[in-house]
């Protein structure tokens, strides 16, 4: 199976894991990564995703091993990583109406879903969406939602909302989360690889607030393969 991974800087954790585990899986993965701000500046026509943004083209060329465009016809599945999509944390006490509207808004207004809507017109294979990691405890960005509940309900609502586009979601891996499912554990954030200049750099402790490490990438990899029904090579 040929899998195309398109995403933002969060792809780096997945790529780091893949580099160590590729031999264990009966698939081929090609990565197209670029910083979140430019990663969705693309057009799609007849199965080709391309961009006029030279910076993005340069990132894609480096991360994919030479490709400036994505030819979707070469792939059996598409994996979207990050692209400014966060798993919505619903704080306690929100009414059902607000929850439903919130999930719908996450779809309507995120770049991820406009990207998928565009791609879906010419790609009928499975599309797996992986959100960016949750922030760690103590992060300023993480304190906005103070009481989280219904993690499973949120996932279910997301899948229902995404069913029209046949999207498969991988939630943040439970093993990497705090027991209250609000934060990413620090051990999955330290040593996060970067995507600086289009080079996957696993040696740098990139950003402990927003980016996860290879161990986290490994968990996500398993979630993706589980969604796609892929088993490890015996």
């Amino acid at each position: 199976m040929n899998i195309c991974v398109i995403g933002s800087s969060h792809v780096a954790a997945l790529k780091a894991a893949w580099d160590n585990e590729a031999a264990a899986w009966p698939v081929r993965m090609t990565f197209f990564a670029a910083p979140g701000g430019i990663a969705s500046k693309v057009k799609s026509s007849e199965g080709i995703i391309c961009s006029t943004d030279n910076r993005l083209k340069e990132f894609w060329k480096k991360t994919s091993g030479g490709e400036e465009k994505v030819n979707l016809r070469r792939y059996d599945a598409l994996v979207i990583v990050g692209l400014q999509f966060s798993f919505p944390l619903l704080r306690a006490g929100l009414s059902r109406q607000v929850r439903e509207v919130l999930i719908s808004d996450v779809f309507c207004f995120s770049k991820t879903f406009s990207f998928i809507s565009m791609v879906r017109k010419s790609f009928s294979g499975p599309i797996v969406v992986c959100p960016r990691p949750l922030y760690p405890e103590g992060s300023k960005a993480a304190t906005r939602e103070d009481l989280v509940e219904s993690f499973d309900d949120t996932l279910e609502a997301l899948e229902e909302e995404g069913s029209g586009l046949q999207i498969l979601f991988t939630p943040p891996p439970l093993k990497a989360l705090s027991t209250d499912r609000r934060f990413t554990r620090p051990e999955y954030l330290s040593g996060a690889p970067s995507l600086k200049g289009g080079e996957f750099n696993a040696d740098k402790d990139f950003d402990r607030e927003a980016h996860a490490n290879e161990a986290y990438g490994s968990l996500v990899l398993r979630e993706i393969f589980e969604k796609l029904g892929i088993s490890q090579i015996d």
Partner: peptide, 15 residues
Amino acid sequence: EPAPQGLSKDNSKKF
């Protein structure tokens, strides 16, 4: 009592 993260501006006002 802020709007939950991800709620659009229009829906924040509506609610």
